[in-house]
């Protein structure tokens, strides 16, 4: 007993190729159009000093990578995955890196609430201590993920400098923000604007 094929084999292979090729080409065209950039700008003058505290809002890997870049730049940097107000003692610049990667052992929404309140506490204390805040976002998550969007929006207006990595679709995240803002296309280009914060 053999089930008949619903279409010819060569037609099936051709259609499979066509689906994959068109998916690929359309995406390339789409991202190519978004990738246009007029070059990236750095800060006109440094806004921060060392030591720098880097923390991830959302428990992703992003904060660690940014802190590693600061280390490459020979900046006196501390990285705390879950930094709180006590960690701000003696710190001259606060870098908040948005990137949610919640653990599954707890309720996701509960973890989000905890991260949001930690972010609010840090911002309030930094303002109190007059520490400049730099907001960094390495991925397009705020456009896709409601938790990232909330964490990003919450910190946006309190930030002194916003650094984004990605294509033009990220520009809409900073609508209504009138502070310093830099967007770079590739992750490795981040070093220049990071350096401009301190020097």
């Amino acid at each position: 007993m053999v089930n008949k094929a619903k279409m010819r084999l060569w037609l099936m292979l051709g259609l499979t190729f066509l689906v994959l090729a068109s998916w690929f080409i359309l995406n390339i065209i789409h991202f190519k159009s978004l990738s246009s950039t007029r070059g990236f700008s750095s800060l006109p003058r440094p806004i921060g000093r060392e030591p720098v505290l880097v923390t991830t809002i959302g428990q992703g890997i992003d904060g660690l990578l940014v802190s590693e870049y600061f280390r490459d730049l020979h900046a006196f940097t501390a990285f705390r995955q879950k930094a709180d107000v006590d960690d701000l003692q003696g710190i001259a610049t606060l870098v908040l890196v948005i990137g949610t990667e919640f653990t599954t052992e707890q309720e996701v929404y509960k973890q989000f609430q905890e991260e949001l309140s930690r972010e609010q506490r840090l911002i309030a204390k930094a303002k109190e201590l007059q520490i400049p805040i730099v907001l960094v976002c390495l991925r397009n998550y705020p456009n896709q993920n409601r938790y990232d969007r909330a964490l990003f929006t919450n910190a946006l207006l309190a930030s002194d400098y916003v650094l984004l990595v990605g294509n033009r679709s990220m520009d809409k995240l900073v609508n209504g923000y009138y502070g310093y803002y830099t967007r770079v296309l590739r992750f490795r280009d981040l070093k220049v604007p990071l350096n401009s914060i301190l020097r």
């Binding site: 053999v2 089930n3 094929a5 619903k6 279409m7 099936m12 259609l15």
Partner: peptide, 16 residues
């Protein structure tokens, strides 16, 4: 989609 296409073009024994 890819699996749907592959299966549509596949002549298969009943117990596949």
């Amino acid at each position: 989609c890819v699996l749907f296409l592959l299966f549509s073009g596949l002549k298969t024994p009943a117990n596949i």
